[in-house]
Nucleic acid binder design. Structure first.
Lengths: 335, 335
DNA sequence: CTCAGGTATGTAACCGGTTACATTTTGTGT
DNA sequence: ACACAAAATGTAACCGGTTACATACCTGAG
C-alpha cells in the first residue's frame, strides 16, 4: 500500500496511477473540477490527500508560461509614501491573482538595474517602477524582456513607459501658490537628494521656475525625519529670516516641525511650514501640517489594474494623471 | 538572415542552432561562462544578442526546481514597524539571491491562509510569517508543502515553526518596570485589537500579569496615529486621573502625544507617555518618546539569513531571541 | 434499435531549460 | 610524432504540469 520511494514527492502521474485515471483527469480535478464526474473527482482527491500531492508551481508556470508574479521597484520602504503605495499595489494585484515581489533600489539606478534583472530572472510577468529616471542597462533589459512595465509617482505622457502618477510639478506649484497667495515672501525650500530622484527634481525645478517675487533659498538634506531636524539648523544659520518653509516631502516637514517646536519657534506664527505628499501623520501633528495630497491609494490600485490588464490582454495602458489637491491646515497662515 | 517566425521568442535551441553549437554550450555560456572557450562564447553571445534571447525563468525554475522566491506575510505595510522589517528582510534576502514576495494579511488568519496558498501556488521556496497565531488551513498548508518557514516579531522556542524575534512580554515588562520604578501608579494601557495579534496580546497579557500595586486600565483602539488620537478621548473620559499612559506600540503613542498636546495636557508633567517598538520618529517628537526598542533591523536580516540557510542546506534554524532595550527619553519622568 | 450530441475520460505532444555522461578537441611533455 | 590528461563540446534524458484532440460513454429522440 505504501509508496516504496519514501523521500520523493508525488507528482501528477503518481496520483493518476493511484486513482486509476489519466493525468488529464487529475489536472482537471485541480483546475476545472466541475468538468469531472463527482465520483471520479472524489477518488482523485482522496489520492491527492493520501500521497500528499502538491502541484509543482514551477512546472505549472513552465507549461502555462505564467508565473503570476509582478515586481515593484521602489526607492525604500522606510518612507510611508512608498509603503502605502505598495500596500495598495499589493491589494490591487492580489485581487487579480497576481503576487507582488518588492525590490528596493535606494534611489540608485545601478541597484535598480540589478534588481530589475533579478526580477526578470525570477520570471516576473510585469513590473512597476518608480519615476522615469533609469539607466541604460535598465532600459535595455526591459526592451529585451518585453515586459509590461508601468512607472508610478510621476506623470509624463511622452515617456516611453506608461506613467500612472501625478504631476509633481503641479504639486509643488500648488504649494508655492498657497504660500505666495498668503503673503509669504522669504521661503526656505528643503528637499532630499536631487541626483537620482526625478520626483524631487521636478518639485524643486517647478518651484525654481515659478514667476514670483518671493525670495527662495534651497537646502538639501536626507529624506527622513532626522533629515528634517538637521535641515532646520542649516535654515536657521542662513543669513535670512524666512517666513515660510516648504519641504519637498512631509517626511522632512515632520522633522522640521519637531525641531522648530523644540527650539520654541512657533509654527505658523514665527514661520509657516508646508509639506508635500500629505501623509496620514500630517493631519494630526500640532499644528496640523498643510500639504498637497499625493493620491497614493488610487495610484497603487490603478497601477495594479493597468498592469494586470496589460499582462492579461496585451494592450498597453494609457498614462494616467491623478489629481493632487491642496490640504490647507494649521501650519500655514496669512502673513 | 532574419528569423522567419517573427512573433515567437527565441529559445535556447534557436540560439544553439544559430551559433552552431549544442544547447549545453549555450546553457554553459549563461551559467558557467568560464567553462566555455572564449571564441565560442563570443559567438554564442553574439547570437543571444541578435535573437534577443531571454532565458525563460519558468523553464529554468522547472528544471532546477528553484524559483528563488520567498514570501512574507505581514499584517500591513501601513505601520512603520512592518515596513522596516520588510526593508531589512528584502535586503538580506537579495544578498542571498532570493526575491521577496510581500503579502499583507490585515492580521486576519483567513486572509493569511489564502495568501499563503497563493505564495505556495507561485512557488515560494520559503516563507516568513508574523507571529504564531495562525489558523488550521494555514498550518495544514505549510505541513503539506513542507516549506521552510520562520515566524518573526515573536519569540517562542517551543513553537512548531522556528521563531526569530523578540520577547513581546519582556518588552511590555520593561516598560511597566520603568513606569512603576519611576513612581507611576495609575496607568492607562492603550492597545490595538487583541483577537488576532499575538504580539499585542502578549504585551497586554504581560502587563496584566505583573505584580504591581499600580492601578491599570485598558483601552482598545486602532493601530494608527488616528487610533491614538481617538483613544485619548476614551482615556480622559474615564473616571480616573492617570499619571501614565503606556501604548502597546509607538504608532498609537504618537497619536496620543499629538492629541494630548493639542488639548494642552503636558507630557510628562501632567501625564507620562510611553510606547513600545521604538520607531525612528520617537527620537524626535516633543518630548521625545520613551519606548522599548524592538530590534527590527537585526530581526529582518537574521530571518533572511536563517531562511536562506534553511532553503540551501535543508537544516532547520534555531529560534532566536533578540534583546529588547529600554530607551528612556523625555516623555516619562519621576513622579 | 440507432444515431445524434453532449459529457467524461484518455493519449500523447509540448513547453525550454539543465546536466550526467559520452565524445571530441586541445595542449603538454618526451 | 605520440601518448595521455585536461579542457571543450555534444547528446539526450529529464523535470511535471497543461491541453488539443481522440475516444468512450451515456442519454433520449425518432
Amino acid at each position: 500500500m505504501m509508496s516504496l520511494s519514501p523521500s520523493k514527492r508525488a507528482n501528477l502521474r503518481d496520483v493518476a496511477r493511484a486513482a486509476d485515471v489519466s493525468v488529464a483527469t487529475v489536472s482537471r480535478v485541480l483546475n476545472t473540477p466541475e468538468k469531472v464526474r463527482k465520483e471520479t473527482r472524489k477518488r482523485v482527491e482522496e489520492q491527492i490527500r493520501l500521497l500528499r500531492f502538491v502541484p509543482s508551481a514551477a512546472a505549472r508556470a513552465f507549461s502555462t508560461g505564467r508565473t503570476r508574479v509582478v515586481g515593484a521597484l521602489v526607492p525604500t520602504l522606510d518612507n510611508a509614501v512608498f509603503a502605502r503605495v505598495l500596500e495598495n499595489l499589493e491589494n490591487g494585484l492580489a485581487r487579480r491573482g497576481l503576487a507582488l515581489v518588492v525590490a528596493t533600489t535606494d534611489d540608485d539606478p545601478i541597484v535598480e538595474a540589478e534588481k530589475a534583472q533579478q526580477l526578470v530572472n525570477i520570471g516576473a510577468e510585469g513590473m512597476v517602477v518608480t519615476g522615469i529616471t533609469h539607466n541604460k542597462a535598465f532600459t535595455k533589459l526591459l526592451d529585451r524582456a518585453e515586459l509590461p512595465v508601468v512607472a508610478i509617482s510621476y506623470y509624463d505622457p511622452s515617456y516611453h513607459i506608461p506613467t500612472i502618477g501625478y504631476d509633481n510639478r503641479e504639486s509643488a506649484r500648488l504649494a508655492m501658490d498657497h504660500l505666495c497667495a498668503s503673503g509669504h515672501r522669504k521661503i526656505a525650500v528643503l528637499h532630499g537628494p536631487l541626483h537620482f530622484s526625478d520626483r524631487t527634481r521636478s518639485r524643486v525645478d517647478a518651484i525654481g521656475a515659478m514667476k514670483t517675487d518671493a525670495e527662495l533659498h534651497f537646502f538639501h538634506t536626507d529624506v527622513s525625519i532626522e533629515g528634517g531636524v538637521r535641515a532646520v539648523q542649516q535654515m536657521l544659520s542662513a543669513p535670512v529670516e524666512f517666513d515660510a518653509c516648504l519641504c519637498a516631502t512631509d517626511v522632512i516637514a515632520t522633522g522640521v516641525l519637531f525641531e522648530l517646536q523644540r527650539q520654541n519657534i512657533k509654527v505658523p506664527d514665527d514661520i509657516s511650514l508646508m509639506g508635500l505628499d500629505d501623509l496620514p501623520i500630517s493631519s494630526f501633528t500640532n499644528p496640523t501640517l498643510t500639504s498637497v495630497r499625493a493620491p497614493v491609494q488610487q495610484m497603487g490600485l490603478q497601477a495594479a489594474d493597468a498592469l494586470a490588464d496589460w499582462i492579461e490582454t496585451g494592450s498597453r495602458p494609457q498614462a494616467i494623471c491623478l489629481p493632487v489637491t491642496l490640504q490647507a491646515r494649521q501650519s500655514t497662515h496669512q502673513r
